[in-house]
């Protein structure tokens, strides 16, 4: 009986040691607490460099949230620098860095990328394309309007969305009539 109790205690001790060891090897991937964008970027860079790159999306969202608290046109440059650093560090490919930047800070819609003609490729999935554009417009509202105070840029993106909707409706109707 005593032997059994001893074995159980030993097992418990071993489990605790293993758990503590694993905690020590996992980096603390918490979100940044800073309210200043520059400091927040430094925090995030440090955390990403210490093995938390799998949480990149969440950190990018944290940075946007911090920037929304202090919106200004220079924020675009800070995000661009951060994404180029991420690309240089190998956390993101060049293409991913571009996508992250343009989705939030450029008038153009990344969801309109495609290599085939509109009749054969875009029209059959027009509703999905418009839905993706609508989501992207939401991100542009955040990046252009709420983070960078680029009102004109955002309204141009909104107008572009409406123009694409109109032109695709007409073009796809014309494509369908020609079949």
């Amino acid at each position: 009986m005593t032997t059994l109790r001893g074995l159980a205690s030993l097992f418990l001790l071993l489990a605790t040691v293993i758990a503590l060891a694993s905690c020590a090897s996992t980096p603390p991937c918490g979100s940044t607490q800073s309210k200043n964008l520059d400091s927040a970027v430094d925090d995030v860079k440090r955390t990403l460099s210490s093995g938390c790159e799998a949480h990149f999306d969440s950190y990018y969202d944290d940075l946007l949230r911090v920037a929304e608290g202090d919106p200004k046109p220079e924020n675009k440059r800070i995000f661009s620098d951060f994404l180029m650093w991420s690309s240089d560090e190998g956390l993101l490919s060049q293409r991913q860095a571009k996508d992250y930047y343009n989705r939030y800070f450029n008038v153009k819609f990344m969801s309109l990328q495609g290599d085939y003609n509109n009749c054969s490729h875009t029209c059959p999935r027009r509703e999905r394309v418009m839905l993706e554009m609508e989501r992207e417009l939401g991100d542009k509202e955040r990046g252009l309007l709420k983070v960078s105070l680029d009102n004109e840029g955002y309204y141009r993106a909104d107008e572009l969305y409406q123009e694409v909707e109109l032109v695709l409706e007409a073009t796809c109707t014309a494509c369908a009539a020609g079949r």
């Binding site: 009749c119 875009t122 073009t171 009539a177």
Partner: peptide, 23 residues
């Protein structure tokens, strides 16, 4: 117009080039 739209915007353009045209 239907013919022109199909030819010029539907068959000769991708969604990306259409966007660039609109911009």
């Amino acid at each position: 117009l239907e013919k022109r739209l199909r030819s010029e915007l539907g068959n000769k353009m991708t969604s990306w080039t259409l966007q660039e045209t609109l911009l």
